[in-house]
Write a protein that binds this DNA or RNA. Structure first.
Length: 422
DNA sequence: TCTGGGGTCCTAGGACCC
DNA sequence: TCTGGGGTCCTAGGACCC
């Protein structure tokens, strides 16, 4: 039998905050989104206090803090670095690994054919990661990706267990799926689960037993794959090659509402500059830049969402072009009198930079294009060091519209913020 | 008063062509 | 000018994920 494993870090952001703060062992921890808006991670203790995922911070703040809970703004420099360390360890243990998200990876256990050995391997992995990085993980082992997700879900529920759960024989799988609501199945979100419930399908077991042609006809190929995977038929492969991105998004909610074009422009410029950096980092060029702006979802009276795309005549990776396109698109969608709460820049339709399609009307010579590339490289190099340089249209330093009041030190990625001992 | 950010895939429908 | 089917390409929108 062939096994896959899903390695999933427990309460990842909260666990990261704990790595350099042993004093916070067993203390409730929550981590907040940008602007300290809502809760995006909770430690086991915070969950036990009834703090829900995604809940607005202001709603729970008082009660939570008064009970001794600890809170952090998100510190992605730290989380990203600790994630890399975990993934590096896993990468050294198997031939094929798919890093699925910042805190999850699928492993191909092709070297293991025996269930007991798979279980032992899981425990070994878990101990090594705990010892070397300090992050607790749980591991689900099963014949398909969807079933490893189920196994990992069970491992989470079974507190005090080894944190490793294997799911292999049909009888055992059926038994587990009977007690699993479809909403918990990977690939079944809020809408699908409502729809399926209306058809009388509530448990993962009932879904698994539903006629596959009916599923395909009524819901399409995506759900069909899920059902097959629940039956133990592997349909979703491990993607161990890193595919180039197909789009890049930079977006933020604002601390305060913005209703003037003059205030919005520098913010959009900031997003566009950041998007350009990401694009060059990916070694891509884009043919489209889109801008979106929207009022708060919760403001029912003054509601407006704008979206517009600027098409470049040929693929670009030059920030100055992106800024120009972004500005044009923004001018088209902006409407006066609306309190905008969020905006973003989206780059898409990528092509590799060595592929240069010349425009009929483009008069730039090879030398000029080369100069542009050099300029961008120079700016990127400066900005990744201590020095920062800005485009005129960007917001000046010190006026960051994003609020982060309770961020922890970047212990592992910044020389000035290394942990110290007394 | 205050409600995240960054992705992917699939499908339906329109434009255009023969 | 109208008639008709079928194919491709593109886009917007909806669903999902962490």
């Amino acid at each position: 039998m062939k096994f896959l494993a899903l390695v999933d870090c427990d309460n990842f952001y909260a666990s990261c905050e704990r790595v350099f703060r042993p004093d916070l062992k067993e203390v409730p921890i929550v981590v907040l989104s940008n602007n300290d808006g809502c809760v995006i991670a909770r430690s086991k203790e915070a969950k036990a206090m009834g703090i829900k995922m995604g809940v607005p911070w202001f709603q729970v703040k008082e009660a939570y803090l008064s009970q001794g809970g600890k809170v952090f703004s998100s510190n992605f420099a730290l989380y990203g670095d600790l994630s890399k360390r975990v993934m590096n360890i896993l990468d050294g243990m198997v031939k094929r690994i798919e890093i699925y998200s910042i805190d999850e990876a699928f492993l191909d256990l092709e070297h293991i054919s025996n269930l007991d050995h798979a279980h032992e391997f899981g425990i070994y992995c878990r101990n090594i990661i705990k010892q070397w990085v300090g992050i607790p993980v749980r591991i689900g082992i099963a014949p398909t990706k969807t079933l490893t997700k189920v196994a990992s879900h069970i491992a989470k529920k079974k507190n005090g267990d080894a944190g490793v759960f294997c799911l292999s024989n049909q009888g055992h799988i059926a038994h587990i799926l009977k007690a699993l609501p479809i909403r918990e199945v990977w690939g079944i979100g809020h809408n699908l689960s409502k729809h399926l419930n209306q058809l009388g399908i509530y448990s993962a077991y009932e879904l698994m037993k539903t006629d596959i042609r009916f599923i395909r006809k009524k819901f399409g190929v995506v759900l069909e794959r899920t059902v097959r995977e629940l039956r133990g038929e592997s349909c979703i492969q491990i993607e161990d090659k890193i595919e180039p991105k197909k789009q890049i998004v930079v977006s933020r909610s604002f601390k305060e509402r913005i209703d003037s074009l003059e205030s919005l422009k520098p913010l959009i410029s900031n997003f566009a500059v950041r998007a350009g950096e990401k694009l060059r980092h990916e070694k891509q060029k884009c043919s489209k830049v889109s801008i979106f702006i929207s009022t708060s979802r919760f403001n029912k009276q003054l509601h407006h969402r704008g979206f517009n795309t600027f098409h470049f005549p040929y693929p670009v990776d030059d920030t100055r072009s992106i800024l120009m396109g972004a500005d044009r698109a923004l001018n088209i969608i902006f409407k006066k009198g609306y309190p905008y709460a969020k905006a973003g820049v989206l780059l898409s339709q990528f092509s590799h930079p060595t592929f240069i399609q010349h425009s009929l009307f483009d008069s730039k010579s090879q030398d000029q294009l080369k100069q542009d590339t050099n300029l961008m490289q120079a700016i990127d190099a400066l900005n990744s060091s201590q020095t920062q340089i800005y485009y005129a249209s960007q917001l000046s330093l010190g006026e960051s519209p994003i609020q982060k009041k309770m961020v922890s030190p970047r212990y592992t990625t910044n020389w000035w913020e290394l942990p110290t001992t007394k």
